[in-house]
Amino acid sequence: MREMISMIVVLTVLTSVSGFLLSTVQSVTKEPIEIAILNIVQAPAIKEIFPEAENDPIAERFPIETENGPIKIFPAKLADGNTAIAFETKGKGGYGGDVGFMVGINLENDQIIATRVTTHSETPGFGARAKDDPEFVSQFAEKSMSDNLGLKSSGGSIDAMSGATVTSMAITLAVKEAQRLYKQLKPEILKQIK
């Protein structure tokens, strides 16, 4: 009996202390991690999507609430005077996990300007080409946000990368998620930008 109680007490105390410690560490590192992700993952993608932005989309970012928590919107002033935004979505079911995908959209005509892969753990030489070689993602440029941007095998207009169908599929899922969010959030985004 005594042994039983000591087992329960030791494990309970140990896990509680551990939980407390981890929640402290988590709250301390939360902000530095967000800044690190912004600088190392999101900023380079934004610079490639809006190479000629006349403002600083990274400094002017603002959060917007969605049903799955807030997402960051990066607004950009284009050279022709139009406004565009970019935001990141996750494509579920890549070969090595979720694929992060940044989509830049022209707010005037709802066309995609450019897209980039942000985070991924796909196989080098196969799925990883989505990030290293912009050929695949350039297919999304100038497509409308209301088009069917699935793979050709599922009735869409996008050619899959050969040897990396799973990665291609995950990216089209990320784009579909972006289309859904864009439709839902556009009024709110326009309000925030004005």
């Binding site: 030791v10 494990l11 140990l14 896990t15 551990s18 410690l21 981890l22 560490v25 988590q26 590192t29 530095p32 991690i33 690190a36 992700i37 190392i40 993952v41």
Partner: peptide
């Protein structure tokens, strides 16, 4: 079980610390 709790705690600290300091 106790060792695993202790080890997992420090591993999580390392994981969060690395994300904050050396993200690449």
């Amino acid at each position: 079980a106790c060792y695993i709790v202790i080890i997992a705690t420090f591993v999580t600290i390392v994981e969060l610390g690395m994300q904050a300091l050396v993200y690449p």
